[in-house]
């Protein structure tokens, strides 16, 4: 149901019946290493190319999520997913294997919440019973497509971020006892004229702030109504900027725990990831692997996940264009009764 100008309230409270995460070695060594379903020791997954490895992780995550939901893929009505590669090949090719009616979406790193919001909308409106929402990213495919060859010796600035090698999938269902998807806010594209592709956090921070403010306005909520508001991949630089913008706009963000998936997935002190994590997989593995477990355990009751995406292409930044950014917010509530 439309709420305010750009938000949906899911009145039937669709549930996340099951979720799964698959990550690479660097994420496994990070502080959330024991929260993922599969940790691969080899980022190549014994495949012939990085692209195949990325697709493999996505298929594994999708299959485990469907299995954990005690369903088979024939039960799933639609599969909504996207990734960072040109023509979203990881998802389209995985959809070929999964053979589930498929809607490919692209929202760069915001795809995790974009697909989850759409999945929840389909289930809430009765357009589908079970919908699979999935996304993935791979450090090496992203480096190859957006930057330099992985083995090329170039020094990354301290604002650079490290693309997460990982895939996350969730099965949204109309009933069950999993975490509820209660609200979503679709972001608008914000471009503050940042052109540096090695400073995505600064480019994306205004989009996150814009979406969070729109969400709070549409539902007449305060940040304190959530136990946690977590952004997708602003990392250390973008997170600081977002905090400052909230202060400037007089949004009492400090009433809640305001954090970022890109700061949680790696140990910034020990791992060479510069400002933190990024990529579609970043918000997906942290949300599906870590935060949903906390919701299931009842440790967190209400959270708002705001996945942020930089909608640039290798061509656009080489031609000197600035980086348009977007953020989509999904509010999740614990399904367990209060202890």
């Amino acid at each position: 149901m439309l709420k305010g100008h750009q938000s949906w309230e899911f009145v039937n409270r669709p549930r996340i019946r099951a979720e799964a995460t698959v990550v690479g070695p660097d994420e496994g060594e990070g502080p959330l290493g024991d929260r993922f379903d599969i940790v691969h020791g080899d980022a190549m997954l014994k495949q012939k190319s990085w692209e195949k490895a990325e697709r493999m992780m996505l298929e594994e995550a999708a299959n485990i999520a469907i299995e954990n939901a005690k369903l088979t893929k024939e039960h799933i009505h639609f599969y909504i997913g996207g990734d960072l590669l040109n023509q979203i090949i990881s998802n389209s090719f995985a959809a070929r294997t999964l053979a589930i009616p498929y809607l490919g979406v692209f929202g760069a790193c915001s795809t995790s919440m974009e697909s989850l919001a759409l999945a929840a909308q389909l289930v809430d409106s009765g357009s589908a019973k079970y919908v699979l929402s999935a996304t993935c990213s791979h450090n090496c495919t992203a480096e190859k497509q957006f930057r330099y060859p992985t083995e090329y010796g170039s020094q990354k600035p301290p604002t650079a971020q490290f693309t997460v090698t990982g895939a996350g999938a969730a099965v949204v269902a109309p009933d069950g006892d999993g975490p509820m998807v209660v609200r979503a806010t679709i972001g608008r594209v914000v471009d503050m004229g940042i052109k540096d592709p090695f400073n995505m956090g600064a480019a994306m921070a205004p989009a996150a702030v814009s979406t969070i403010q729109a969400h709070l306005h549409d539902f007449q909520l305060q940040p304190g109504d959530y136990d946690m508001i977590v952004t997708g991949d602003l990392a250390s630089v973008g997170h600081e900027i977002a905090l400052e913008l909230f202060d400037k706009h007089n949004v009492p963000i400090r009433e809640t725990t305001f954090t970022d998936c890109g700061l949680m997935v790696y140990d910034l002190e020990k791992q060479p990831v510069q400002a933190g994590g990024s990529g579609c997989g970043c918000s997906a593995v942290v949300t599906y692997g870590h935060l949903l477990k906390k919701l299931r355990e009842g440790e967190l009751r209400r959270i708002l996940v705001v996945a942020t995406g930089a909608l640039l292409s290798p061509l656009s930044f080489q031609q000197g264009e600035s980086i348009p950014c977007i953020a989509h917010a999904v509010a999740l509530e614990s399904g367990v009764t209060k202890r």
Binding site: P158, M192, G193, N199, V237, E240, I241
Partner: peptide, 19 residues
């Protein structure tokens, strides 16, 4: 760039860790 964009870029520049 608009005024807001310029203002924002100054904020972003200030928050950027120096090389």
């Amino acid at each position: 760039l608009t005024m807001t964009q310029q203002e924002y870029q100054q904020v972003a520049k200030r928050k950027e860790p120096p090389r």
